[in-house]
């Protein structure tokens, strides 16, 4: 056990070293003039920019807007897709109606709908959030449907013979049993939602990390563009880690959370 944690610590250290090494190579390559600093500005310049933008608060406005759009779209998608996925698994009629629509919709490149949404709604938050919801919806509904339809009948029968009504089954038994699959669906949808947020911001403008990057690009501000990429990387990592934590907390009962 202690050797395992030591090994894990060592592995974490190695990973940090690799990242530090890459950062050094980045810094050195533009400082030494191997690549033109306009194409790849030194890491230190990018970090300085991030720092000054943090001091002025500009970063937090952009990050906040991006996060707000991404999470709003993601949560709306979850609220719609989880119940629909469960209903599809439990009611033949619902499955019959939605299955073909989802089969068509899932593989479709959602970004192709941007012009339509701009036409129908606006270029502001409404159509951005709708785009994000639209792209998060399919992975969540598919994972929920598949997880719910593979539930064993035994816990359901147990609950019924212990006095649960048909309606209580849904919330008290089926939802927790499908939770691992639902969470997997959410974990797949979240990065999709983040990507969609940045791309729609780039296409439609307005503030937010994506919009700021496009603006920086227009002004030939390559340090600004790279600062945007760093922001996206950090935001993405934080949000995805947070969801991993949530999964571990919700599924404490699951063998996946027992290392030994």
């Amino acid at each position: 056990m202690s050797t395992l944690s030591a090994l894990l610590k060592r592995e974490g250290l190695m990973q940090a070293l690799v990242l530090a090494g890459l950062a050094l190579v980045w810094e050195a390559s533009s400082r030494a003039g191997w690549v033109h600093p306009f194409l790849l500005p030194p890491l230190s310049d990018v970090l300085v920019r991030l720092f000054t933008d943090m001091q002025s608060g500009a970063v937090f406005v952009d990050l906040g807007l991006t996060l707000y759009r991404a999470l709003t779209g993601f949560v709306i998608a979850a609220v719609l897709a989880v119940p629909l996925g469960i209903l599809m698994a439990r009611k033949r009629g619902v499955q019959w109606f939605f299955d073909p629509l989802i089969s068509i919709g899932f593989p479709m490149p959602k970004i192709a709908f941007v012009p339509i949404f701009i036409l129908w709604f606006d270029i502001y938050d409404t159509s951005k959030v709708i785009m994000i919801t639209f792209s998060c919806f399919f992975p969540i509904v598919t994972a929920t449907y598949s997880g719910t339809s593979h539930i064993d009948k035994w816990p359901l029968w147990s609950a019924r013979s212990l006095g649960a009504s048909e309606n209580q089954l849904l919330r008290e038994i089926i939802l927790p049993l499908a939770a691992p699959s639902i969470l997997t669906g959410l974990q797949i949808a979240l990065p999709v939602g983040m990507i969609t947020t940045i791309v729609t911001e780039m296409l439609m403008g307005g503030s937010g990390v994506g919009g700021a990057m496009i603006a920086a690009g227009r002004f030939a501000d390559s340090v600004g563009v790279f600062a945007g990429i760093m922001e996206i990387a950090i935001l993405g990592m934080v949000v995805i880690r947070a969801l991993d934590r949530l999964r571990a907390r919700l599924l404490v009962w699951h063998p996946e959370n027992r290392a030994h």
Binding site: D152, W154, P155, W157, S158, A159, S161, L162, I173, P176, L177, A179, L251, W253, H254
Partner: peptide, 12 residues
């Protein structure tokens, strides 16, 4: 009420 051959406990 029934005790199933495979226990059928609620794992969560």
């Amino acid at each position: 009420s029934i005790v199933f051959q495979n226990f059928a406990l609620f794992p969560w």
